[in-house]
Write a protein that binds this DNA or RNA. Sequence first.
RNA 1: GUGGCUGUGGUGAAGCGGUCAACACGGCGGAUUGUGGUUCCGUUAUUCGAGGGUUCGAUCCCCUUCAGCCACCCCA
Length: 421
Amino acid sequence: MLITGPRGTKDILPDASGNWQYIEKTVRDICRLYLYKEIRTPVFEHTELFLRGIGETTDIVEKEMYTFSDRGERSLTLRPENTAAVVRSFLENKLYADTLLNKLFYIGPMFRYDRPQAGRYRQFHQFGVEALGSKGPAIDAEIIMLAVQLLRTLGLDDLKLYLNSVGCPQCRPVYREKLQNFLREKTSNLCSDCQSRFERNPMRVLDCKKEKCTEQTQGAPHIVDCLCDECSTHFDQLKSLLTLAGVDFVLNPRLVRGLDYYTKTAFEIQYAPLGAQSAVCGGGRYDGLVAECGGQSTPGIGFAIGIERILLALEKQNLLPVISNAIDVYVAPMGIDMQGMAFKLLCKLRENGITAEMDFMEKGIKWQMKQANKYPAKFVAIIGEEEAAKEKVMLKNMLSGVQELVSINEVQQKIQLDMEA
RNA sequence: GUGGCUGUGGUGAAGCGGUCAACACGGCGGAUUGUGGUUCCGUUAUUCGAGGGUUCGAUCCCCUUCAGCCACCCCA
């Protein structure tokens, strides 16, 4: 039996890597436009970072992390997300000393021990953005616009932007208690998951998709009605900024993020045709995270986009660019004796920036012509005994079928002339 | 982690107890040994995800296992 790749991992094969490069390039272009700079952090961190950053009772930490001890008995974890690591790096490298506002992005693999499904892998890739330093709503709006513009640039519409505010340490406990009071006598009617959520994280009950739970939560108090003045003003300002920017959004009072560090703004962008994996982008504000990681209290906001899911969406909509294998010249030696001359020509063409290929399989002219046609090649430079004797090449234009005998030095000129035309 | 469906060549797939394991694409060879895209011909699965069992006989039935997909959970 062959050794297979681990469950939930996927090879990005030659035919698909072009699609990844296309997305990565689009991401980088947009980030340049918004002046977000790339940060690259390690794929593993001290386990402690995620316990503190993401929250010990979150599903990610409780059951989805790849945690192991290294040979020095350190507990390490393959990053399940990258915000905590960016914050760690921000503090460790004192990025706050360089500028008041740090605008960063990352793109790379993340790891979660989940049950695999289409659009859900154990090693998956996220593009994410983090802005550290500003507490005002304008940066929230910018971040959301970046996500929206990226998805639009890729050609995706039919996207829904859901928005909510989850409050801050001032107002959230007040809301939490209100919600618990509302749910208290209904707990017996909730699903078993929600019964345990009632104590631990009552806000997640609102997020439950089970019909009986949704029924019970009809008329539940909304957090947006319980926000403190600061959070409420922030939320109102964000909404008006987004309206000014011309983006549609849907207020979703039930939207709760799964990571503990979120405060105030929470948002999610969904692409409905992906079914259960429709959440294509998720993010929000995390004003408490930097302090939680041991730094000076610094506000922050960010989001992450799942690249596999974007790819699925683009495939579904037929929005992926066609990647061409076209080449300028195929050099075809007729027989092994001509190989040296062919190779010399090949090298010369490439030195001059001409996309060229030759036969490495030592096949006949017929096979080589077929190959040339497959790429397709604009020209084939045929080198037979007769041509070789004269230090010349039979240059065939594959489109017109016209061929002429030219000297080795002329090949390049002929091709460049054609390329300009 | 729970439940369901699926697993046949490089790919897309028929077959569902005894077949030579269809067909299509692709690959390779030829017709056309100094010339491609069309056409035609030939060839391409000691084997049906892996392991075990039932049976005279298993791709087909049963069990185990692995993997993928779908829903839940969670999330990007």
